[in-house]
Nucleic acid binder design. Sequence first.
DNA 1: CTGTTAGCGCATTCAG
DNA 2: CTGAATGCGCTAACAG
Lengths: 347, 347
Amino acid sequence: MEQQKVTIKDVADLAGVSKSTVSRYLNNGYISAEKQAKVRKAIEQTGFQSNFFAKRLKTRESKLIGIVLPRMDSVTVGKLLSGITRVLEPEGYQSILLVSQLSSKKELESMQKLQQQGVDAILVDSVGLTAEHVRRAQEWGLPILYTGQKNAAVHCLKIDDAAAGHRMGAYLRQMGHKHAVFAGVTESDEAVGIERKEGFIAGFCEGRTDAKVDFVETGFDFLSAYNQAAEIHKLGSTVVVGATDNISLGILRYFHERGVRVPEDISVVGFGGYDVGAVVYPALTTVAFDYELMGMKAASYLLNILRGGEAEMTNLDMPLLFVERESVQNLMKKTLPINSTSLPAMM
Amino acid sequence: MEQQKVTIKDVADLAGVSKSTVSRYLNNGYISAEKQAKVRKAIEQTGFQSNFFAKRLKTRESKLIGIVLPRMDSVTVGKLLSGITRVLEPEGYQSILLVSQLSSKKELESMQKLQQQGVDAILVDSVGLTAEHVRRAQEWGLPILYTGQKNAAVHCLKIDDAAAGHRMGAYLRQMGHKHAVFAGVTESDEAVGIERKEGFIAGFCEGRTDAKVDFVETGFDFLSAYNQAAEIHKLGSTVVVGATDNISLGILRYFHERGVRVPEDISVVGFGGYDVGAVVYPALTTVAFDYELMGMKAASYLLNILRGGEAEMTNLDMPLLFVERESVQNLMKKTLPINSTSLPAMM
DNA sequence: CTGTTAGCGCATTCAG
DNA sequence: CTGAATGCGCTAACAG
């Protein structure tokens, strides 16, 4: 139980120099080659490790980035974290994680804790930006970046849900579909619940009046989607659009059980580009988001400010990737030439 | 940019008391109701927040738990973290995360960083326990718990892979299968690559000599499993056992493409109990592990030691849950009465 | 109950 | 280049 016994003073004594000299050695200060060797040796012998807290108390830098996540056990969050870590780690920064449990209130509380804790910056994968979120971004003296939701008053990094929805809508329109059911989540999630849906409707109906989109609300998980599937099916559309791939997967399962063939009898599409979408049958046509890239961009942004750079986001548009697979039937007489498998979407 | 300007002294001055009184107020020390009110007011007015580092420098406690994970973007890791957070958070502890990228060496490096950083305890979801891991657990003055792998010399928390394998083997034996292909991962992963497989073979062959198990190596992902599927199929077994559900999913996809019916033509099972296993068709029969529970247990263990409790693990056996779904055919003449859907496995 | 007095371990002036 | 001195902000004896 002898954790942090040896201090900079012990090293100094052993090396026969002053504490300041050791400190200089540690921080690239000027020091003669001779003493340098002595100090190095003393450090090795004692196994000295500088005290993190004492150091931070002086330097006012923690090398810690606070991250607030809505939940831990989700594929998207995992990818996001993966991206963040990838750029933060090489720079000597570490992340400290807090979970908001999809609550905007807990989100704020977590930010408070992190700030008090002295993190150098905060990244929040938000479920809803309030006035308080904005206030903090402005008043607190540290860089804050929000992802997942958008608000003009603060710095955000977000998938362009409207564009994603629009793209999918346009695709289905080109495939000759006229009646879709959008299986989506609550509108309290502005990004997924509203933007994505509205975008879809716009893209789907664009330039015609004979298109129709019905809406059925589900949760984010397989099961709640599965449970709504009967109602969705009753609507008699030619395609059902899951607001997330998980929703689509639940619906696919239902159709399978009922002997409804996809895409022969009905088409199904999703959003997200989860890996599993490729192994189910039929493989799911979807708009894929690169959450890992998003994590990397977010971390880079923060790092840039921390280095004294300006807070401007040069390119915070997240690219979309349309992934055409097997779950959509082409209703047009003559098959349109569609660029196959996956085409980068520039919006 | 006025982050941490107000100190305990400012509060003291404003309230007309001494710094110690304020400190006592903050730490549940005795203080008169009168001054208590004054201090509270002063704190509100100034918006005082105690300096994390100064506090920790004194108390020698960080309230930080270091966590080393093999990767971030995996379902199991997500669940694990979810469980850890659930018990740590209410106790005022926070987690700081490092990623080992499946490298035992990086694992050690990460532990080093965390220790130097002054975390109160370390949790490592290890990919392989070396002598150095053992040494640290003994010599470092802080609680260390390893999960994912086992070593008698240190405290570990692990799924009983041998038991899980055995259980699956026994089940398939009872279902009348005599020839299985085990699609597994490299043996460098002792837990999954060896224990799980050996356990399966033992359970499958138990009490008979006409059973046969072939082995084909794959990676952990859908694709590598999918790529090995042809070879696996050629072996002509009645059942293929994926070392993880992901592997099984990749194989299921291959069979679907080839028109091989599951379970009519061949049975497929997995390990893990991932949610998606329930929505694919046929739904995958599997042995489920409760990683979230594992995370909770791990955190509780650490917390217990931190509170001065002894380092004994009262119950660190992780329960197994056998999930019988649709992907296995019963080859016996008369259908055996099997306790349906899912039965808790006491091993 | 409360104020005074000491440091925690380190980085950083400031004189040498 | 180097050592002595100072204090970061806070808690913990210590005497009132």
